[in-house]
Computed example of a mutant assay.
Amino acid sequence: MMHNDSAAILDDLLSRWHHWMKGKPVNGVDRLEDPTFRDAQCRSGWDSAGDVLDRQMEGIAMAAVDFHVSGDSRGQGGMPEPYRAAIYCIARNCYTGHKVWMSPRLPRDPEERGIVLMEARNMLTKRLLAAGVM
């Protein structure tokens, strides 16, 4: 079982990751982004160097969470099912602030589902600690 501090840190990371994933292109394609400004570091024109650096660091941390949950195109990283589905549900619940989202990939039995959710959280926490994200 995780300590309260690491559980709160993981909840915060998962909430931010869910928000980050919402803005991520689908299948690597972002039709709304103008190619002229694709690599711009300062989106508003008023960001300080610290703001740009903070955004870059956040992107690196979120990419690390994404790798440890979803994996990459070569099949590296990522969590096996049903733990990946559990993390997706936990992240969405953390982001919305409601514990209502569930996945059909998780066990129907509430006790079994609770065990899978706890194991998924513990598994991800260990991965993120080892990667230096937490």
Rank of each mutant, 00 (worst) to 15 (best):
A131P: 15
H18L: 00
I87P: 08
P25G: 10
H19L: 08
A8W: 02
S48P: 14
V52C: 05
L128K: 08
R31T: 13
P82E: 15
V69C: 04
A8E: 15
I60N: 13
M2L: 12
A91I: 06
D109W: 00
M62I: 05
L10N: 06
M57T: 02
E111C: 12
H3N: 15
L32S: 14
R84S: 02
F37A: 09
A86K: 01
G23T: 06
R16V: 03
D39S: 05
I115T: 11
S15N: 10
D5E: 15
L128T: 10
D12V: 00
N122H: 04
A61D: 08
P110D: 09
W101E: 15
A49F: 01
K22V: 11
M1F: 07
V100W: 04
G78I: 01
G50V: 05
S48R: 03
H19D: 10
C42W: 12
S6L: 12
I9Q: 09
H68I: 09
E119V: 07
P82G: 07
R127V: 02
G59T: 03
S44C: 14
W20L: 06
V69K: 00
M134K: 10
P80C: 01
A131K: 15
N93G: 03
V26M: 07
Q41S: 08
G132Q: 10
P110S: 11
E119S: 11
L117T: 06
Y95P: 01
G114C: 07
Y95D: 12
S6K: 07
H19S: 12
H3V: 11
I90L: 07
A7R: 07
R113Q: 12
M57W: 00
M62Q: 13
Y88S: 08
Q76V: 02
D109N: 11
V29L: 08
M62F: 03
G132K: 15
H19G: 12
W46L: 08
D11Q: 13
H19M: 14
G45I: 05
M123Q: 15
Q76H: 07
M123K: 09
P104F: 05
A8N: 10
M79R: 00
N122P: 01
R31Y: 11
